[in-house]
Design a protein around this nucleic acid. Sequence first.
DNA 1: CATGAATGAGTATTCATTCAT
DNA 2: TATGAATGAATACTCATTCAT
Lengths: 227, 227, 227, 227
Amino acid sequence: MSLAISKSPGKSPGRPKDLSLTERRRQEILDAAALAFASDGYQNTDLQVLADRLKVAKGTLYRYFPSKRELFLAAVDRGVRLLHDQVEASAKGVSEPLARLELAMTAYFKFFDDHPELIELFIQERAEFRDRKTSTYFEHSDANAGPWIEMFAGLIQDGAVRTMPVERIMNALGNLVYGTLFTTYFRGKSGSLEAQTRDLLDIVLFGILSNTERSKLQFAPDQEFAP
Amino acid sequence: MSLAISKSPGKSPGRPKDLSLTERRRQEILDAAALAFASDGYQNTDLQVLADRLKVAKGTLYRYFPSKRELFLAAVDRGVRLLHDQVEASAKGVSEPLARLELAMTAYFKFFDDHPELIELFIQERAEFRDRKTSTYFEHSDANAGPWIEMFAGLIQDGAVRTMPVERIMNALGNLVYGTLFTTYFRGKSGSLEAQTRDLLDIVLFGILSNTERSKLQFAPDQEFAP
Amino acid sequence: MSLAISKSPGKSPGRPKDLSLTERRRQEILDAAALAFASDGYQNTDLQVLADRLKVAKGTLYRYFPSKRELFLAAVDRGVRLLHDQVEASAKGVSEPLARLELAMTAYFKFFDDHPELIELFIQERAEFRDRKTSTYFEHSDANAGPWIEMFAGLIQDGAVRTMPVERIMNALGNLVYGTLFTTYFRGKSGSLEAQTRDLLDIVLFGILSNTERSKLQFAPDQEFAP
Amino acid sequence: MSLAISKSPGKSPGRPKDLSLTERRRQEILDAAALAFASDGYQNTDLQVLADRLKVAKGTLYRYFPSKRELFLAAVDRGVRLLHDQVEASAKGVSEPLARLELAMTAYFKFFDDHPELIELFIQERAEFRDRKTSTYFEHSDANAGPWIEMFAGLIQDGAVRTMPVERIMNALGNLVYGTLFTTYFRGKSGSLEAQTRDLLDIVLFGILSNTERSKLQFAPDQEFAP
DNA sequence: CATGAATGAGTATTCATTCAT
DNA sequence: TATGAATGAATACTCATTCAT
C-alpha cells in the first residue's frame, strides 16, 4: 500500500470519472508531493527531487502550482477532501445516532491508518504556516461539526445523554479523537487506529467509574463530582 | 622537560570563571530562544535576531550551545523540566487518588496556560526532527506514567473503577489531555486550559450517557456496548 | 622523536644557556605552533586548540605574538635559524672544498630528515602569504650563498671545475637540493634525504654520460652540446 | 561562433540541452578559477568574486561543480592535462634520445612560462589538501615516467650513459626540474624557465668538474668519489 | 505547454582578536 | 601577567523561482 494519498479504487462519489489530462497530472503531483512533504518535512523537501521523482522538469511544477507553499497546501487540502468523502460515505443509510457515531469514527480512523502521511502534513502545516488563521484540520472539523451537534442535542432532548452543554461533549470527543490520532502516529503505531474506536467510545459513553463508585459521588448538571 | 607551561601552584592567575553568571546567562538564552522558536518557527528563527534581542553577539550563543539544533532541544528540555517540577509539586501531600488526578491535571494545564510557547516547541520538534526516536513530550509522558498506572490499578482493585485494562484508561486519558492541549492552543484559546479540567474529568469518570440509557445498553468487561 | 622543531640537546652554539622564563615560553609556543601548523595547515590551525595543547589560555598566545600570522612566521624563522646553526657547524674545521660541500649537504638534508615539519611550513608560508617579497627559505638560501659562490669561483680558478658562470652552478645545485627536499617529502619518504647526498653530488660533479659519449659530444664554454 | 542548437527531431518537448554550450562554459569557469585561485590562494578566493568576474551568479558555479574543492581540483586537473598534451606533442617524430629529452624539457618549461598559475595551484593543492594521497603534479609525473625510464635504460645498455640505477637518474632529473620550476617561479622570474633547459642539461650530462679533476677523483659504480 | 539553465537572497557556523577582571 | 568570555566579520552552499527557448 502506497504511503501517498491516492483515491481508493472503490468509489469516487460526486466526481466525474474521466479527469482531463491536466487534472490527472495535477493529482499525480499532489500524490507525490504529499509523500515527499510527509517524508522529508516541508522545508527539507527539494522541489527538484520531487520533479525528478515525477519525471518532470521543475518548471512544470510551477505550471500547476504557483509556489511551493500552494503546492503543499493543495496536497493537504486534497487529503482532507478524500477524508471527508470517506467519512461521509461511511454512515450512509444508518440512522441510529450512536451507530452513526461509531461508523464515522471507524471510517475516520481507518482513513488515517491508510494515510498516515496526512497526519504528518497537519504537523508540517502548523509548524511552517503559523500565520494562517486556522489549520486545514480544524477548518474541516468545524465544517463538519453541525450534524453531530444536532445529533447530541437530540440525544440530550431524548434523555439518552446527560444534560450538559453540547459543546462540552463535542470538545471532549474532538480532543480525544485528535489526541488519539497524533499520539498513535507519533508513537509509531500507525495502522492501529481503527481498533481503538470501541475502547474510546466505551469510555466516553460510560465513563471509567464503577456503578458503586458512581452512586457514591454526586454529579449534577454543573459537574460537581466530589472528592 | 615538559612542553606545558606550568602554572604557579596555589594561585589561579587570570580572570576567574564565574559559574553562576554562566549558568544565569544560559537560562536567559534558553528563555529567549524558546520564545523566538515558538514565535517564528525553528527554520525561520535567525540566531542573529535572537542574539540581537539578547544584546549579545551571535558567537556568544555558540559559546553556550554548539548548534542551533542543540539550542532548540535544550529549550524544549528546559520547558519539560519546569513542567515536571510544577506538576510534581501540585499534588504533594494529597493522597486521595481522584483528588490527586484532578490536581495534577489542573497543574498540567495551568503550566501550558502560562507557557503556551512550549506547545509550539513540541510541534516544531516533531516537524523538524522527525528522525529522533521519540519526541520530548512523549519521553516525558512515559517517564511519569508509572505512578498513575499504579493508581488506576488500585482503583480497579478497590472496585472504584470498572474492570478494564489500565492501559486503555491511560491511553484515553493521555490522548484526551494531549488533544485538549493542542486543540485549545491551535484554536487560539490559550489561557483557557485550566478551566477545562473538571469538564474533561467528568466525562472520563462518568461518561456522557444518562443513567436510563446506560441501563438499556449492555456493556461487559470487554466493552461490548450494543448499537 | 618529536615532529616539533626543538633544540638538539647536544649543542646550542652562540646562545646563552639560561633563557629567561619569558623566552623559554616563547620557544615552547613556537615548538608547538610549528607542529600544529605543519599538521593542520595554517588556515585550519585553531589557536584555541594550540593554546589547549600548551595548557595556556588563548589570550596568552597574544602576549607573545601579536597575531596568528606573526606566530607562524616566527615559527618558520626559528626553524630556519636552527637549520642554519646545524649546517654551519657541520663543516667546521674542514677546508677541502668538495668535502665541505658534501658535509654541508649532508647536514642540510639530515636536518630536514629530523624536522620534516619545516618543509610543510615552507609550503604553507608560500600558500598563505603570497604577498611577502620572498619566502623565508629563499631569504635563508641567499643569505648563505656567499661563501659557496666564492668556493666555486676558486675551484674554477684552480681548474678543478669547468669554466662556467658560477651562478649557473649555484642555480643547478640549489634547484636540485630544493627539488629533492620537497619531492622526497611529498612522496612520503621523509627520513631518507641524507642518504641521497652522495648520489646527487656524483651526478652534479661527473654528469651521467659515459666517458666515450662525452668525447663524442662537443661542449664548449657556452654549453653547446650537440644533438 | 555558432549558436546552432540541434533539435532532436521527433519529440523532446521543452528547452533542449545544449551540451557544447555547457562544455564551453565549463572551460571558461575553469580558466577563470585557475587564475583566481592562483592569484588569491584557495582559501582567500571568494566564489562570489569569481562569479562576478565571470558575469554569472554564484549558483551557476555550483551547477557546474559541486563544491569549491571540486572546482579547484578540476582546475588543477585541466592544467595538467594541457601540460601533458603540449609535452607529448613536442617530441613527436624525433627519435634521438637526448634530442627528445631536450625537446620535452623545453616544452615542459615553456608551458609553465606561459601558465605560471599552474605552479601556484600545485602549491595551493598541497597546502590545502594535505590529506589527498598524492598531488596532481606527482600523479602526472609518475604516469609519464615509463618511456623515459626505458630511454635511460637503453642509453646505459648502449654505453652512452654511465652504469648506474636508472631510478637515480630519474630522481636527480625529476628533482632538478621540479626545483627549477618552483624556485624560478618563487623568485619572481616567471618567463625564464625555457632558457634554462640547456644549462641544466649540460650539468646533468657532463657534470661540473673539469676533465683534469675528473681523472684525479675516482668514482665507481657505487659512487665513491673521494675527499 | 514543457523544459532546465540561471539566478541570488538567505544563514549557520567559525575563529582571530580584544579587553575587563 | 594571565585569563577566557565576548565579539562580529567572513563565507560556502542551497533551492525556490523565473524565463528564454
